[in-house]
Amino acid sequence: MRSVKNEIYYNAMMVIGIGFLLVFSIIPMFGVIIAFKDFVPAKGMLGSAWVGLKHFNRMFALAETRNVIRNTLVIAISKIVLNIIVPVSFAILLNELKVYPVKRVVQTVVYLPHFLSWVILGIMFTNIFSYTGIVNQILGKFGVPPQMYMISNSSFRGIIIGTDVWKTFGYGAIIYLAAITNIDPNTYEAAAIDGAGRWQRIWFVTLPSIQGTIVLMSTLALGNVLNAGFDQIFTMYSPLVYPTGDIIDTYVYRMGITKMQYSFSTAVGLFKSGISFLLITLSYTLANKFADYTIF
């Protein structure tokens, strides 16, 4: 039922929010122009000289940038893969638990880390992985010599990936738990009558039933291939682990602000945004096509 009067109301309701987006999101987007210029603050964004793709060429020529892109891919893809495997396994395991009070307690506890900030967790994990921290104390009992995990290039990535999984697996499992709850109990009973054991029930009933959700979540995760987690790495890294831990976002921040390479860092950021944009578009197209998923 369309009515012009209602439409005026609808538009009026959108005005303030859209205004905020225009001011704080759309207008700054024009700033990416400095990626194609040699931005000199004294001359301003428009007055600086146009240099075309110079900064993009430099980006691909620099070994440092290539390494940052590699770090980003390794960390982000590992997180994506593990953040599907672990929550799915956990959801299945939790579904098998028959002691209901314990189930509730476990659920309460595993969702909590999702709501804690990386600033706080950064302090806590620095304690845990420090030379005198819990990890070294426990491994020491097994004769492993203590190490400085947070500043070692052989362990930093592992810590980043592991702690991220730790923080998000519980929350990520919610969606799979919901999918499992939707499974018709009769299917399980039928399987039990056929003599299926626990393992077979998981393999032949549970997993196939949540297959669609798993595929959908994997597709949607595609858009995050260049998002390795700025907040986490920013609060946990140090110059000693730049070789393995520096990602595009942290690199853009350091280049753009600390080292004042405004144009170059904008170019790197634009490169990342561009690729991410394509990937997200692709992932939603796929999700729409195969899972009938739409975000709006």
């Binding site: 959108m14 859209i18 987006l21 001011v23 704080f24 999101s25 759309i26 207008i27 700054p28 987007m29 024009f30 700033g31 990416v32 400095i34 853009v252 921040y253 753009g256 602000i257 405004y262 860092s265 904008t266 950021g269 634009l270 945004s273 991410s276 944009f277 997200i280 975000i295 709006f296």
Partner: peptide, 22 residues
């Protein structure tokens, strides 16, 4: 409206231009 909103979710102008606006 919807496209505009989703676009702002996927793309941003970066730190320095946003800083200048603020």
């Amino acid at each position: 409206y919807m496209w505009l909103m989703v676009f702002t979710m996927l793309f941003n102008g970066g730190l320095i231009p946003t800083y200048l606006v603020v």
